[in-house]
Design a protein around this nucleic acid. Structure first.
Lengths: 292, 292
DNA sequence: TCAAAACCATGAACAATGCTCATAAATGTT
DNA sequence: AACATTTATGAGCATTGTTCATGGTTTTGA
C-alpha cells in the first residue's frame, strides 16, 4: 500500500538526485532505499524512475506520485505539528496568507495584540502561493486569507475587516500636489512605482489607467513600502497606496495623498477562512480583533 | 510517525463508531486496533478520542487528524488507481466536474467520441463538491471543470468551449409563445422550474428577475432536464435553459424558446484544468475535441 | 584507456514493528 | 444480576524493514 514513507522517498530522490544522498537525508542506508524502491515498483507494477545512465528520471507514473507527495506531505507535517502543539499545551499556528501588499502594515498592527492575548498561538505569514491565495486556503496551505478580492465559494466564509481609500501619492513639488483629484491622463509623464505583482492585480492599472486608455511613462516595482515612499518623497515617481498608510508616513516624509478620479477609489479588505475552522477559538478571536 | 494507516483508522472509527466494527472493516482484529490507537495517542502525546461511556468522541486534536484523513485519503486512492491503471496499460481516469446543470447534455455528446478514441481512458463525472468546482479542481478531486464562471487563478488554465443563448422555455399555449422576447415582469404569474441549486447560481434569477426586482408565482426544482421539459410542454410551468437544448427536444415536445430580454442572454462555457495537467496527452486531446 | 571514485543492486542475517490469540475488564441491556 | 457487547492487555508469532557485506555498473579524470 502506498504510504507516507514512499512519498518521502520520491520527494527525497527528486531533491537529491542520487539514492546515496537521499538515503542519507532520510536517515537510511543506501541499501534500504534501493530495496524500498524496488519493492515499490514491484507493488505498483510499474517503475517510478527510468535510468538515463546514472541519472534518475521520473516516469509518467512517478510524476503522479511526486505530485501527490508535494501536495500531501506538507499537510501531514502541518497536521502533525498542530497536534503536537496541542499536546504541549500550545494551541498551534495560525497561517495567514496575504494577497494585498500594503495590508502587511495593517496586519502587523492586528497581530501585536493578538500575540499578547494568545501566547500559545503562533502566527505564520505567507505571501506566495502556487494556486493563488484562494487555492492556498482550499489546499490547507494557509488557514486565513487577507484579500481585497473575496471569491465566495461554498465552504468558505469571508468577513470584511476594513475599508480604505486608495490614493495616488506624490510629493509636494508634484504638479498634482494641490489638485482635488487626479485624472488618468494626469500621470502620463510620471514614473509609477508599485509592488512587484502582475499589472492585472494592481487597481491603479485595472481600475484607473486601463479603463481610460491611459498609461504612464515608466512602471517600476519595489518590494518594500518604506523605500517606495522614500522614492516618491524624493520626487522619483508616484505611487498608489492606501490613504491611511500614506498618512502614517507623512509626518517624516514629504508625501501628499491625491484622490484617484473624482469619486475616489474605495476598497474593502476581507478575511477568508474555511467554514470548518470557524469553531476554533483562536481563529474566531483573531477575526474578532481584526474587525475592530 | 503519522501514517496513512492512522488516517484510515480514524476515518473508519468515525464511520463505524465502534472499534470492533472498524477493525472488521479494516481487516484487522479488534485487538490490533486497540493497540494501534493506544500507540497513536502515546506517540502524538494527546488522545484522539474521548470516551463518553461507550461512545467515542473526537478530541480537538482528533478532529484535525480526521480532517486530514478526509482530504488526503481520497488523493492517495486516486493516485494509486491512476498508477495501477498505467501499469495495466490503461491510461487512467479523467475526472470531470460540472458546475452547470444543462451542460451535462452537451458533455454526453463530447464524451462519446472521446471514449471511442481513447479506449484506455475512463471518464468520471462529478457534480457535488465541498468547496465548489474550483475547490475541487485545486484540491485534486477532479481534473477538469466545466463551468460558466471561469475564476482565473495562477496555476489554472481555462478554455472557452462553447457559446449559447440562454432562453425561457414555454409551450405553445403560453402567452409568451409568440412574443419576440420576454420581459422580467412577463413571468410574474408563472411557475418557474429550475435545477435544484441556489438561486444565486441561476442566471434567470441573478441576471434577469432580480435586477428588475421581479419574481415568479412559484419556484419549483427538478433534477432532470427531460422531466423539466415535459412539465413545461404540459403547461405546468416555464423553464430557463440553453436554446440548443430546447431545440433538441422540440421535435417531440411542445416547446418554444423565448429570448430573455431584448438583447437575449448569451453565455459562454469554459473548461478549466490545472496547468501541470496540460501536458497529459488525453487531457489535451479531450479539450481539443471539446472545442469543436 | 584505465584506474579510481561514486553509485547502485543483491542476499543473508538481524531487529523492530505490527498482528493475532487468549483472556480479562469495562460498559450497557434486559 | 446475568448476559451481550465492546474494549484493554500481555505474550508469542509473523512480517516487514533495516543493516552489513559484497559485487556490479557508470562516470570521471589523469
Amino acid at each position: 500500500m502506498l504510504d507516507r514513507t514512499h512519498l518521502k522517498i520520491i520527494q527525497a530522490i527528486q531533491q537529491y538526485g542520487t539514492l546515496t544522498k537521499s538515503a542519507e537525508a532520510l536517515h537510511l542506508t543506501q541499501s534500504a532505499l534501493s530495496h524500498a524502491i524496488k519493492k515499490l515498483d514491484a507493488e505498483l507494477g510499474v517503475p517510478m524512475w527510468e535510468k538515463e545512465g546514472r541519472q534518475l528520471r521520473l516516469t509518467q507514473a512517478g510524476k503522479r506520485l511526486s505530485s501527490l507527495a508535494n501536495r500531501v506531505l506538507p499537510q501531514f507535517e502541518h497536521c502533525e505539528s498542530q497536534i503536537t502543539d496541542i499536546a504541549k499545551g500550545r494551541r498551534g499556528t495560525l497561517r495567514i496568507g496575504m494577497e494585498c501588499h500594503p495590508c502587511y502594515q495593517w496586519l502587523l498592527k492586528v497581530i501585536e495584540p493578538f500575540l499578547r492575548e494568545w501566547p500559545d498561538v503562533d502566527i505564520d505569514v505567507k505571501q506566495e502561493f502556487q494556486f493563488g491565495g484562494l487555492g492556498a486556503l482550499l489546499g490547507y496551505e494557509i488557514d486565513l486569507l487577507v484579500t481585497p478580492d473575496p471569491l465566495f465559494r461554498r465552504g468558505l466564509e469571508y468577513v470584511p475587516v476594513f475599508d480604505y481609500e486608495h490614493v495616488l501619492v506624490v510629493n509636494s513639488d508634484h504638479h498634482l500636489a494641490s489638485v482635488e483629484y487626479a485624472k488618468p491622463s494626469d500621470i502620463g509623464r510620471d514614473v509609477l512605482i508599485t509592488y512587484p505583482v502582475e499589472a492585472s492585480r494592481l487597481d491603479i492599472f485595472s481600475q484607473f489607467l486601463l479603463p481610460a486608455g491611459c498609461s504612464v511613462k515608466q512602471h517600476r516595482t519595489l518590494e518594500t513600502t518604506e523605500i517606495m515612499l522614500h522614492m516618491v518623497a524624493a520626487g522619483r515617481g508616484v505611487g498608489a497606496l492606501p490613504k491611511w498608510l500614506v498618512e502614517e508616513y507623512s509626518d517624516h516624509l514629504d508625501l501628499i495623498p491625491v484622490r484617484l478620479g473624482k469619486k475616489g477609489m474605495f476598497k474593502q479588505i476581507f478575511m477568508g477562512i474555511r467554514e470548518e475552522d470557524q469553531a476554533i477559538d483562536y481563529v474566531a478571536e483573531f477575526i474578532n480583533t481584526a474587525q475592530l
